[in-house]
Design a protein around this nucleic acid. Structure first.
Lengths: 191, 191
DNA sequence: TTATAATGATATGTTTATCTATCATTTGAG
DNA sequence: CTCAAATGATAGATAAACATATCATTATAA
């Protein structure tokens, strides 16, 4: 395996960069180096290009999500507890992943796009299964359901960041929003 | 009033710029000028700075939304038809407004932020009224409800742009998503 | 301790976009 | 038609960020 020392430092740079970019997506390499407590020369030695840094950042974030999802213990056939636990493990990652939504480079790197699709796959299959069993509305495309869930995660992270939402309230709020919407008595028209 | 001739041209530049920036948020002034069919010198004569152009763009978009909302005929007390009509009039504006979500300058200009809040106000009051009458879930903050509705509009616009969603299906899909969520039988936990 | 590798400060080069300035050409009002 | 205003092409100035290179200093392993 690689030199553990360098890997550790590399990871430290990634973490610090992520933290800064979450607040300021346009941060300069100089600012990133400062915030990471290293010289800009060293930053270049670890990531020769801004693009490479951002790619590494994205892959790191995807790895964190994958790891978190791997720790979900609820069984997939129990929709409510499963979904709840998914949101519970993902919400704490907010600050380390949310910058992905504003990183344009992400959409341009096929590898990252593929990885993003790959870690979404389990949730996609789960949603389709729940639809097949009548637990979820079958009148809506699974793709729409996944997309909305994904985006609401980002919205929740933003609101937590802005101080409008308590981190501990977020998972339940998301589950309720996703499963019931805002209506009280089923006024919706699902034709 | 101002010279109508110049105003017309100004508006034409704004429309063309919006169209381009919707697809490529990082477009250069040169690219914007080309796409608008004018020289870059003339572009500078109308908008001396990129920032001023983006601000004018944002205000123009906000104006379009306000105008569209002003044309809503359904009464506010009829939630379902009102909400449906709101989405119906806003969805066609997608391409002219969606770039707002990726324009960082928007969040930094107090005037624009204020205008954005102002045109949201009617919807905010409507939501609070529906909550008070038990038509909407009172267990969720009105701010969350508004924020989610707003973001789902952007999501819908993106999906239409990507070709994953038919423009004509969007309003109904949004209403259903917002009012019922994805659940079929009220599995949600609203404690 | 010594030698090698890593680091940080700094200088320099390169690119890219914004902005300003100029001038010949075109347009449009009177 | 005539003339003033508007336009477009172009050149150059400025600025900001990225990237490379150098070198003295520090840290680390042998």
């Amino acid at each position: 395996m690689k030199t553990s020392v360098k890997d550790t430092k590399r990871k430290a740079i990634l973490d610090a960069s992520t933290e800064l970019l979450a607040m300021k997506p346009t941060a300069t390499l100089q600012e990133i180096a400062d915030h990471s407590g290293i010289g800009i020369a060293t930053l270049h030695r670890y990531f020769s290009t801004r693009e490479l840094l951002l790619d590494a950042l994205a892959l790191n974030a995807i790895g964190l999500v994958e790891e978190a999802l791997g720790g979900v213990t609820a069984e997939e056939h129990d929709m409510l507890p499963f979904l709840t636990e998914v949101f519970e493990v993902l919400i704490p990652l907010g600050g380390k992943v949310s910058f992905l939504s504003s990183a344009a480079s992400v959409d341009e790197n096929p590898h990252i796009v593929a990885e993003e699709a790959r870690i979404k796959q389990p949730l996609r299959e789960a949603v389709e299964g729940w639809q097949a069993r009548g637990l979820l509305n079958t009148g809506m495309p699974a793709h729409w359901i996944i997309t909305v869930m994904y985006n609401l995660l980002f919205v929740a992270w933003q609101e937590i960041q802005k101080g409008n939402l308590a981190k501990n309230d977020a998972p339940k709020l998301l589950v309720n929003t996703v499963l019931q919407g805002f209506g009280r008595t089923g006024q919706g028209d699902s034709r």
